[in-house]
Structure formats: C-alpha cells, structure tokens
C-alpha cells in the first residue's frame, strides 16, 4: 500500500477506519457528516496554532463551530449576518499572517460575497480558506435562495483560488489540514449529511490530485463531493451486470488533475461526470473541454442539476429526481455503452 500523507496526527485514525472498510468489502461503513469532521479537525488545528482564526456570520451553529468558540474563544471572530463583511474582514486578518477560515453557507458565501472573494482574497492573494457549508442542495427544502449550484462555475472563472469538494470524512480532514498549510486562497465546500467512508486505491490526499475510489475499464464515473458515494453505488450495480466501472473522486476542481481524467477516459469506453452543481460551468464542463482539446471523442454525459428551477425536496429526493443515485447513474452508464 502506498504511503499515507504526512499529517501524522490523523494518519493513525485513518488507517484504522480503512481497515474496517476492507473487512466490510462492498458495504461501506457510514461515517460522520463532513461538516462534523471539518469542525473536529479545525479544533485540533486551532489548539496547536494560535494563528488559526475562524470568522463566522451568525453561522457558527450551522458550521458546527460552537465547540470551537467555547474551547478557543480568542480564535473566533463573529461578524453578524454580513457575508460581504465576513470575506473582507477575513482578507484583512489574513494579510497580517493569520490563517483564516471564513465559514458561511455556500449559497451566501459564494454569491453575496463574490466581489470580496474576487478582489480581496483571490486577486490580492490572501491565504483565506473559504468554507462553504451546507453546499449544493443540502438545504433542499429551503428553496433556491439556499441552494448553491453556481459556486464552482463562478469560482472557476476567478484566477488564483483552489476549489476543493471532499467526498468523505477522509478527504474532508485532509483538505482542512492542507488548507491550513496553504499559502493561497482555497474554497472548500461540503454538506451536512453523514457520508460513507469510501475505499480508495491510495490512502493519500493531495490538493489537485484525484483519488481513484475503484478501478474499472468499461465506464468511468468522474464525480465530486457527495455524489461520489452514489457513483460508487452505481459501479456496484453495474458490476452485477458484468460491467466494470471506474470511480474517481475529483475532489479538486481547480487545479484540475487532467492526467487522472485522461487516464480514466482513455481506458474506458464511456465517461459520466457527476456533481451536485449546475450542469453548466462545473466539473462536467471542465472535463468536456479537456476531452475536446485532447481529441478524446467518447460517449459522455454530464450529470448534475439541469438549468431549470430546482425541484423542491430533501437533498436525497433532489438527487433521485435528477438521477444522482446508484440506480440513475447506472442507467445513464448503460445508455452510453
């Protein structure tokens, strides 16, 4: 087995968890919500580094940061319900050498504060980590105001900001640690639902380097965030039908791991991208432009939220509605093959 990452504090725990996954083979062990892992990781990091600051906009409850505030009261800055202020203040704090995590629901953080992100963080190159909580359609039943299906598209078009969408607890933990060590702007988003612990070929995590969850050579699912688990489920359904599916967790959308995408696409007959995002401007379009430039012409489908008023309901109902499920994705793959 290849080496785990250097962040030894978390190394041991992960090793244990992965051992459990192996034992249960295809039935994945349910982990915690990525949101919870984020909060736990940040408390660990904050305790060891006084320069780590969390900035919230009446969002510490939604961000599971109440314990952070209780344990490290000097390291949390509350700005009130003011997301533009949140990002501007975070940029100012970061300019003095603080390691700043600005935490707010992704829908507000990436729309309301967009100019602050573009100018104060990305253009000014302030090492702020923007944490978009309850991303995608996590707030499904609250309506479109609370959905965040545009964030990858807008941030992709802004120079100098990494975009990371962890799929499970392992990736979340390592993304947060990596962000705390990064010298450049990063956007990390996740939901609030418990996520299964996914298997992966290599127990390592690096921003900009995709994780192979499962190897296959008929169809490749290139997915990110909370859609990797349904893609994995689809791969298992396909296996029963004698179809070999590869599953890649493309946790970093920017910089894009072109090599991993091309490798998968070359060996498979068809490619399906999956994301909890508009089908415009996200992972799917990033892959399709890469395929065109590299002259890879294969059956291809972008699965995400189409350009319509998103159906109302819980996140799982919305996923099912748009075919982001084991069943839906396996059918999509079969249609391409």
């Amino acid at each position: 087995m290849p080496q785990s990452p250097e962040n030894t504090k978390f190394h041991k725990a992960d090793k244990l968890k992965n051992a459990q996954i192996k034992m249960t083979s295809t039935i994945l062990k349910m982990g915690k919500a990525n949101l919870e892992i984020f909060s736990e990781t940040l408390i660990e990091l904050g305790k060891n580094d006084k320069d780590i600051l969390v900035v919230t906009s009446d969002s510490r409850g939604s961000g599971k940061l109440v314990p952070f505030g209780e344990q490290l009261p000097g390291q949390i800055v509350e700005v009130g319900i003011a997301e533009q202020n949140l990002v501007g203040v975070a940029a100012g704090l970061a300019s003095t050498g603080k390691k700043v995590f600005a935490v707010s629901p992704s829908c507000f953080l990436t729309a309301r504060s967009l100019e602050q992100v573009k100018n104060d963080v990305a253009y000014s190159n302030m090492p702020v980590t923007l944490i978009g909580i309850s991303a995608g359609v996590s707030y499904g039943a609250l309506g479109t105001t609370h959905h965040s299906l545009h964030d990858v598209a807008v941030f992709r078009a802004i120079n100098n900001i990494d975009i990371v969408i962890p799929a499970d607890n392992f990736e979340t933990r390592h993304a947060i640690v990596a962000a705390s060590q990064s010298k450049k702007p990063i956007f990390i988003k996740f939901g609030k639902k418990n996520m299964p612990n996914l298997p992966r070929l290599e127990q390592s995590f690096e921003i900009g380097k995709a994780s192979v969850i499962r190897e296959g050579n008929d169809v490749a699912f290139i997915a990110c965030g909370e859609t990797v688990a349904p893609a994995y489920e689809a791969a298992q359904i396909l296996e029963e039908k004698g179809i070999s599916a590869e599953v890649i967790s493309m946790h970093t959308i920017k910089p894009l791991d072109k090599e991993a995408i091309l490798k998968s696409a070359m060996k498979c007959k068809a490619v399906v991208t999956v994301e909890e995002h508009s089908i415009y401007g996200g992972l799917g379009e990033a892959c399709s432009s890469l395929f065109m430039e590299e002259r890879i012409y294969k059956p291809f489908k972008i699965v995400g939220i189409p350009d319509e008023e998103t159906v109302s309901g819980l996140q799982t109902e919305i996923f099912d509605h748009y075919g982001i499920s084991g069943k839906g994705l396996s059918e999509t793959a079969l249609n391409l093959l």
Binding site: A141, H146, V311, S312, L314, H321
Partner: peptide, 9 residues
Amino acid sequence: RYKSPYVGH
C-alpha cells in the same frame, strides 16, 4: 415536501 411549492422561504 418533494415537489411542493411551499418551500421553506
């Protein structure tokens, strides 16, 4: 609920 127009806002 699923498909209800009466969403949370």
